[in-house]
Computed example of a mutant assay.
Amino acid sequence: MERGNTKHGPVLDEQMKSETRGTIQGTVGGRAEEWKMPEPAGEDQPEVTVAPGGAYGRGVPAGVGSPKGEAFSRFGTYIGLSALPGDRAALEQSARVLEAPDDVMRRLALLPEGTVYENVAQVWDASEGSTA
């Protein structure tokens, strides 16, 4: 049994459905009024550029989707924010809790003892080349 609106007829229901289709389906460019379109960045906005060495500092690979960028992202998922700032022991403990794979644990085990790392980028930079 189809439940329709009892206050309108089928023709008016179809017309109302087509009027709201863009809002319900969220079509690309579905904004009806020009004044609702977002403005482009102004002249006073800085251009975003990525240095060849990385996006956030030395050793951090640029570009999500690149092999090094994906490796960095995967590595960072196994280091909890509560472990930072921290030394090798704190980072290894955090990685164990987050069930890091062996390659991440090997990379952390090769970090120098006694060095405190402020962020994942510093850990990545210090462990670069340690293990793949």
Results as ranks from 00 to 15, higher is better:
47 E>M: 07
63 G>Q: 15
1 M>E: 07
52 P>T: 00
41 A>I: 02
18 S>K: 09
94 S>F: 04
105 M>T: 06
110 L>H: 00
53 G>R: 15
111 L>K: 10
2 E>T: 05
12 L>K: 10
95 A>V: 05
71 A>K: 13
38 P>E: 02
12 L>C: 05
38 P>W: 01
48 V>Q: 07
25 Q>W: 00
63 G>P: 15
117 Y>F: 15
19 E>Q: 07
128 E>R: 15
13 D>G: 06
62 A>I: 00
107 R>M: 15
123 V>E: 11
95 A>P: 02
126 A>W: 03
18 S>T: 11
60 V>H: 10
86 G>A: 09
76 G>T: 05
7 K>T: 06
50 V>E: 04
85 P>Y: 04
15 Q>K: 02
13 D>C: 07
85 P>W: 02
109 A>H: 07
31 R>N: 11
93 Q>M: 04
12 L>G: 03
17 K>G: 04
84 L>Q: 05
16 M>Q: 15
86 G>V: 09
93 Q>A: 15
37 M>N: 13
127 S>L: 07
105 M>K: 03
56 Y>S: 07
105 M>I: 14
85 P>Q: 01
47 E>L: 15
47 E>W: 06
117 Y>P: 04
79 I>E: 10
58 R>K: 12
111 L>D: 10
80 G>K: 08
74 R>N: 04
120 V>C: 12
121 A>R: 13
28 V>F: 05
128 E>M: 12
96 R>C: 02
67 P>F: 09
14 E>M: 04
116 V>M: 09
57 G>P: 04
60 V>I: 08
63 G>H: 14
107 R>A: 14
28 V>H: 01
36 K>Q: 15
112 P>D: 13
124 W>L: 00
61 P>I: 00
8 H>I: 10
34 E>F: 09
12 L>S: 11
132 A>F: 11
61 P>V: 00
72 F>R: 05
40 P>I: 01
28 V>K: 01
72 F>E: 05
33 E>D: 08
1 M>D: 06
98 L>F: 05
117 Y>E: 10
111 L>C: 11
58 R>Y: 10
61 P>Q: 02
19 E>S: 08
29 G>P: 14
132 A>R: 14
6 T>S: 02
10 P>L: 12
22 G>M: 00
48 V>T: 04
108 L>N: 10
100 A>F: 11
109 A>N: 06
105 M>L: 13
26 G>R: 09
2 E>H: 06
60 V>G: 02
61 P>D: 01
119 N>K: 09
3 R>C: 01
73 S>G: 08
101 P>W: 06
41 A>F: 10
95 A>H: 04
35 W>I: 08
61 P>T: 00
106 R>I: 11
38 P>N: 02
31 R>S: 14
129 G>T: 05
106 R>K: 13
26 G>F: 03
75 F>E: 01
101 P>F: 04
94 S>I: 03
67 P>I: 13
113 E>M: 06
77 T>D: 09
111 L>H: 09
41 A>H: 06
131 T>P: 12
89 A>Y: 09
39 E>G: 10
72 F>V: 03
65 G>R: 07
121 A>D: 13
124 W>K: 00
40 P>S: 02
